[in-house]
Nucleic acid binder design. Structure first.
Length: 641
DNA sequence: TCAATCCGTATC
DNA sequence: ATACGGATTGAC
């Protein structure tokens, strides 16, 4: 074979983020195949790497070193995945090595030796129940015919989404192509795993090394045509790829917390683009990112007609926080608005369980408009305002400008109020208000996946709501202010997503479960819930982001680190024309150290590539100089505040 | 004039 | 991290 091996070394230094050429010694010629793991001497020490390709020559002027060792001839990094990883690194201003660590699980030698490699590509039947969705059955047929449709699907309340995804997957496999499906967490993965009858591998973060590698090899060796998993599965090898799909792309869990912080949705979309595969973005709600796909016509929207939604959606009613409470002692015990208390009581009496959604504790104090309750934003850069104990006046969290002359961007109000979030209601309090009904909790440390059909109060934090057999008789959405006044640009979108997720667990239809949301019925997000209209809300949300210059309409990068380091990086970066730097402002680092954060934004997504390239190059100059202090670069950080 | 040492830079 | 090249320094 060709004598030169191009190697991606496992070194995450920005200035070394490119392949290096080595000579293949004669005895390794047969095993040094593209995609295999190698060890090479790099700057005097032995490092791991992946062999990207073999070539005849090298552009390197100096003499080439020899490969030290081929760890295994198993081609774990397929060319399409290498290309995807490079594109993801570029998009997120990060290093290929960091992305490859996310994409390829660590080797487990025993598993590699033992794992079977039978190719199993059954000719799937692909009947489907997409009829309620105009364009749905055609979408499935297109996949079965080997086409690559792209759609943002808004599912009906109570939809058996794992079954719908399973149908899309079966149709894709029928066409002789593979599918990769990503869900937020282990609970969703279990459901999907159960629903998909096509032979598949399951890749989850929680798996042990052997299990994880075994499942990875099933896909890598082409033994199965389908991979289901959590965010890292977006990189799973699958050739030829016919479909990528994601469930509930608005869930934070899709955002990778390790550098370069890629989001599973973006990874899958890039992948669909690179490999000409179909793409399905499936959710009960709709994120601004999904809306952008629709508005740019990258994907078609698929949703049931309003008439069908009306029949399937539960009845939702808003209620003020405390108007009737004083008149209703039983409700006061639970600190529940009267309507919420009565709705729960009736559901329990009818023999059905009741879901109570309570936000998690510990949100940051935010500032909002006294008149319309809109989160207060900076007059200059539209960043969120915050109150600090050291300052009398609220100031912008992004650019630091004091907001002495505040004017609400929505209603023009000039007064601010602190929206400090108090503690949530406890399960014990609810238990006292409903003596005789069992109270169950589902939250952070103990998540229930399902509860029985018998009457019970089920208190859950967002994302941990168990499904109830037969559906809930009532769903109460409490302390909604905690969600809505979060100092986060996604607060409204996130609140609606969480409410819809809980409400979708109610018995379907106007005569089914009742949903009570304790919030002002005039708020946009609450209106969207009452009308069960996430698409219109998403369009409005994206419109606002466009006006304010926020992602995904614009592209932003946050630079966090010691003050000198952030300043140094900003000096070195040859930012694209029109890039706007906000801040830096002081932020509290996790370990208490004083850090600063600057935000850089460009108006269009096209300039995003140039922005990422400029930041990566500047980081390269700093790492080459061994400059003091690390700067964390996050492109389109999910939590912008 | 040459060798020992220092510093900066590249790392194949 | 380590290795190398060019510059710098000090002794003959």
């Amino acid at each position: 074979m060709a004598p030169v091996a191009r190697i991606a070394v496992d070194v995450s230094l920005a200035h070394l983020d490119r392949p290096f050429d080595y000579l293949v010694p004669a005895e390794l010629d047969g095993v040094a195949v593209p995609g295999c793991r190698v060890r090479v001497r790099f700057a005097g020490r032995l490092v791991d790497g992946f062999l990207l390709e073999r070539g005849e020559g090298s552009a390197h002027a100096g003499t080439l070193a020899y490969l030290e060792k081929v760890v295994s001839a198993e081609p774990v990094l397929r060319p399409e995945v290498a290309r995807l990883a490079r594109a993801v690194a570029d998009r997120y201003a990060g290093c290929l090595a960091d992305v490859l660590r996310l994409a390829v699980p660590p080797r487990h030698a025993r598993t590699e030796a033992a794992a079977a490699s039978t190719v199993e590509r059954p000719d799937e039947a692909w009947a489907n129940e997409w009829d309620p969705y105009p364009g749905g059955p055609e979408l499935i047929s297109a996949l079965a015919n080997g086409e690559s449709p792209r759609a943002v699907v808004t599912v009906l309340p109570g939809e058996d989404w794992p079954a719908r995804l399973a149908e899309a997957v079966a149709a894709t496999v029928h066409s002789g192509r593979g599918a990769v499906v990503v869900v937020p967490d282990a609970r969703d993965l279990d459901r999907l795993d159960a629903a998909v009858a096509t032979p598949h591998a399951v890749l989850a973060a929680a798996q042990g090394p052997a299990q994880r590698y075994r499942q990875f090899l099933l896909a890598s060796r082409g033994a199965v045509p389908v991979v289901l998993g959590t965010r890292a599965a977006a990189f799973a090898p699958m050739a030829p790829l016919g479909l990528v799909a994601i469930w509930d792309d608005g869930d934070d869990l899709h955002a990778e917390p390790r550098a370069p912080y890629p989001h599973a949705l973006q990874v899958l979309l890039m992948r669909a683009q690179l490999e000409s595969a179909g793409a399905l973005v499936l959710a009960t709600s709709r994120s601004a990112e999904a809306q952008l796909l629709v508005e740019t016509r990258w994907a078609v929207p698929i949703a049931a007609d309003r008439s069908v939604v009306r029949v399937r959606a539960p009845q939702v009613a808003p209620t003020g926080d405390d108007l009737d409470r004083a008149r209703d002692p039983a409700a006061a015990v639970a600190r529940l608005p009267s309507l919420a208390w009565r709705t729960a009581r009736d559901a329990l009496a009818s023999g059905a369980p009741v879901l109570v959604q309570v936000p998690r504790r510990g949100y940051l104090p935010a500032v909002s408009c006294v008149e319309c309750h809109a989160p207060a934003r900076c007059g200059r850069c539209a960043g969120p305002l915050e109150l600090r104990s050291s300052h009398a006046v609220a100031a912008c969290r992004w650019c630091g400008r004091p907001a002495a002359d505040f004017a609400c961007h929505r209603c023009g109000g000039r007064r601010l109020r602190a929206a400090v979030i108090g503690a949530g209601r406890t399960a014990e309090e609810l238990g006292r208000a409903f003596p005789g009904s069992p109270v169950r909790t589902s939250g952070r440390d103990a998540v229930l996946s399902t509860v029985g059909p018998e009457p019970a109060l089920v208190v859950a934090t967002p994302g941990a709501e168990p499904r109830a057999e037969g559906g809930y008789g009532a769903v109460l959405l409490l302390d909604t202010w905690a969600l809505l006044t979060r100092a986060d640009l996604r607060a409204g979108e996130e609140a609606l997503r969480r409410w819809l997720t809980a409400a979708t667990l109610a018995r379907p239809g106007p005569d089914g479960g009742r949903v009570v949301v304790v919030a002002d019925g005039g708020l946009v997000a609450v209106q969207a819930l009452l009308r069960w209209d996430p698409a219109t809300f998403a369009a409005r949300e994206l419109g606002e982001r466009r006006e304010l210059g926020f992602p995904p309409a614009a592209r932003m990068a946050s630079l966090t680190g010691p003050a000198d380091a952030v300043a140094d990086l900003l000096t070195l970066a040859a930012l694209p024309e029109g890039a706007e730097v906000l801040g830096p402002v002081p932020v509290a680092a996790s370990d208490g150290a004083a850090e600063e954060r600057a935000l850089v934004r460009v108006a269009s997504r096209h300039e995003g590539a140039a922005l990422a390239a400029a930041l990566h190059a500047a980081a390269g100059v700093r790492s080459a100089r061994k400059a003091e202090g690390a700067v964390r670069i996050q492109v389109d950080p999910r939590e912008l505040w």
